[in-house]
Computed example of a mutant assay.
Amino acid sequence: MKFRPIGPAALPGCAGEHLLQKAYGTADRAERFYRDQVLDHLNPEMVEFVGRMEMAFVGTADAAGECDASFRAGPPGFLHVLDSRRVAYPEYRGNGVLASLGNISENPHVALLMIDFVRDLIGLHVNGRAAIVDDVVLRRDHPALPVADERGRAPERWVVVHVEEAYVHCRKHIPRLRPVSRDRDWGSDDTRRKGGDYFGVRARQNAPVAGRR
């Protein structure tokens, strides 16, 4: 959805969304949702919610519309609300693919989904336009940004999302989860134990081929 002020001829959402609402008879329900739940900023309750989240799902697409869904996690506060219209999340050293950042460099539209699986069983969608900002640059204006995560990793850069839409994800079907220890075999050289080759892709690619020496 793309947020537009609600009026007689203007509603949030794309043309296809509105056409299907008419075709499927959901236009009245959709309009109530737009009016009651969709904002173009974060209200205080949303700010509090974002501040206690420990994970988020990130949706991006490149210039051709090829999509990628990614996962980000950290201690409460790793999603940092800069103000009511901007949310930032850190990017650390990873596998070097930079799929999400690559998409954002071509197409700034981004979707964040945060879900509270533990306490309230509710979610928050934040859609908007993203910019990639180096850590040192963003920290000049926002010195309260977290310096490192719980494993001591320092952010290399940040994705700053300029909020265009913020709305609830209802609790229906959200499972309740229980937090457990986050200990991982990060110091191990065993790729399988670390989860880096959980699906056996590398193992199969490196397996000897019959008849070859």
Rank of each mutant, 00 (worst) to 15 (best):
A56G: 10
G128W: 10
W186F: 15
R202G: 01
S181V: 06
R52W: 09
R176E: 08
G16W: 00
A15S: 12
N127I: 04
C14H: 10
G196Q: 11
H142T: 08
Y89M: 09
S188D: 10
P5K: 11
R119T: 09
C170K: 03
H18E: 03
M53K: 03
R4W: 05
L113F: 03
G102W: 04
F3Q: 00
T26Y: 03
G7Y: 03
R129S: 12
L79M: 11
E66A: 13
P143K: 11
P179Y: 12
L20Q: 05
L19I: 07
Y24V: 04
R213Y: 09
V209W: 06
D28G: 09
A64C: 10
P143E: 08
Q21K: 06
Y198F: 13
G196H: 15
F57C: 05
F117W: 13
H80L: 01
W186L: 15
L82D: 03
V160E: 04
Y167I: 00
H125F: 13
N107K: 07
H173K: 09
R119C: 08
R139A: 15
I132R: 08
Y92E: 00
V118I: 12
R182I: 10
R29K: 14
R72Q: 02
L42H: 04
R153G: 02
F57Y: 12
E66G: 06
L124F: 02
R151L: 15
I6E: 07
Y24M: 09
S105T: 07
F78N: 02
P75K: 13
G195Y: 03
L145F: 05
K22G: 15
A154I: 13
G200K: 01
V126C: 08
P208Q: 03
D28A: 15
F117C: 08
A23T: 01
I132F: 01
A23N: 06
R178E: 09
I122H: 11
S181T: 14
H41F: 15
A130Q: 00
H80A: 09
A131T: 14
I115S: 06
P12E: 01
G123V: 01
